[in-house]
Write a protein that binds this DNA or RNA. Structure first.
Lengths: 230, 230
DNA sequence: ACAAAAGTGTTCGCTTTACACCCATGT
DNA sequence: ACATGGGTGTAAAGCGAACACTTTTGT
């Protein structure tokens, strides 16, 4: 333990948002250094007395001004010793989800610019960040099947079709509307409100709300969320 | 990036083995330092130019003399800033599986002793290592349902009942022998050899072998391994 | 002959899937 | 009245779950 080590520790975040049938990732443009003007994932070095998850939140707040609704550790990238030109840096990557409604991006410290990129049109990123994004996407695609994290991409109140379209978009598959609604409602973790959705054309729909405490209670009794596709 | 950071990077491994209906974890007893004589997971500091997974393999080889059949990254522990008394150390934990047949434990560098502990009787470990073990166990329990990693705990040739008992042991549930066999064989990823198993009493059984290349080929065509219980 | 483990099919119920028409609203 | 998206039920197929007797070997 007395060995002198010269490895730096960073965190990076793959933050997803969803809007109008489009899934996006948050990227920032570097302001300084060797990677100036390169797009990268928000992130940076961990402070000496800072828990990893606090480092992620701090970097997100500093570089983009946003705070997320859901966050989990994704993977630690440290097998490519030369992944950062400036020296050995390992990065602990996190995946996060956010409802972008009412959020405003604000590039500041370290970042010249911050912006959402649709997952279909991510530019070439510095480091191994393209790989991290695709690992994050994979995690998200898998996890929406067996954990109710999709709701963290939606506003608190949402029409049922929003959930359906979210699943269609993220999974890339078609869903049978009737079967999907039947399945999700059978879980009894959504509250139907008496408000209705008014936007665009067509018949207005009721707004629903994810009841997290009900979900938690059900889980305690052995319930397991699972959605397969029609 | 010019910030001076004082965080050390370690790796730790939760290595599982299976023998006679018992699942065990590999532990080592510390030889030096503040944690002398404490049982811990095999692991240690990463070298400056060493990929993380190489560090795990090196530490395992140095401290216990074993090499593993399967290894995957588990989780990075870095939210508890004081998890190591000697200073800030984050640890990237790996889960590994090994067939203990013909393996010999050899404690050496840094370790006074190395030994298998049944998962039901793990002592109090230093650091947060009890937590890491239980996270590893959880990962293993979940993963055998949807990835064919159980075979890495068995010898190359095994009687069908060994697989069945492995699943019973790890999941802690009872399995219907007929349904289990039907399901597994339906995947067509096992080769039936003409050798037979001779040990103990009862009718001898045929030995089977996991056909990894066949499995890989099937996966490429959309096959998904999945085992639920009767 | 007995004990011990291997080997083997069928039935039932539930879940998944496939599928099409009417309703409420805005223009 | 037409366009747009919301809301709803039923039948067929496939999969998971429950269940018991015969076979082979050693003692």
């Amino acid at each position: 333990m007395s060995v002198n080590q010269n490895i730096k520790v960073a965190v990076d975040a793959v933050v997803f948002s969803y809007k109008k049938n489009e899934l996006s990732v948050l990227l920032v443009k570097q302001k300084y250094g060797v990677y100036k003007n390169k797009w990268v994932l928000p992130g940076g070095l961990v402070l000496d007395n800072e828990p990893l998850k606090d480092a992620v939140k701090r970097e997100l707040s500093e570089e983009t001004g946003i705070s997320v609704d859901y966050m989990e550790q994704l993977y630690t990238y440290g097998d490519e010793v030369g992944r950062d030109k400036r020296g050995r840096v390992i990065s602990i990557a996190y995946m996060a989800l956010v409802d972008p409604d009412g959020m405003k991006l604000e590039a500041s410290t370290d970042a010249i610019d911050a912006s959402w990129f649709k997952v279909g049109s991510i530019p070439n990123l510095a480091f191994d960040h393209n790989k991290i994004v695709s690992d994050g996407l994979l995690r998200l695609r898998n996890k929406i099947h067996y954990q109710p994290i999709g709701f963290d991409l939606l506003p608190e109140l949402f029409p049922f079709s929003a959930l359906e379209n979210l699943y269609k978009t993220i999974s890339g598959k078609n869903i049978d509307r009737r079967n999907f609604r039947k399945k999700v409602l059978s879980f009894d973790i959504l509250e139907e409100t008496d408000k209705i959705h008014q936007e665009g054309s067509g018949r207005p729909g009721k707004l629903f709300k994810f009841n997290k405490s009900k979900y938690d209670a059900l889980v305690k009794h052995g319930f397991h969320f699972e959605i397969k596709y029609a």
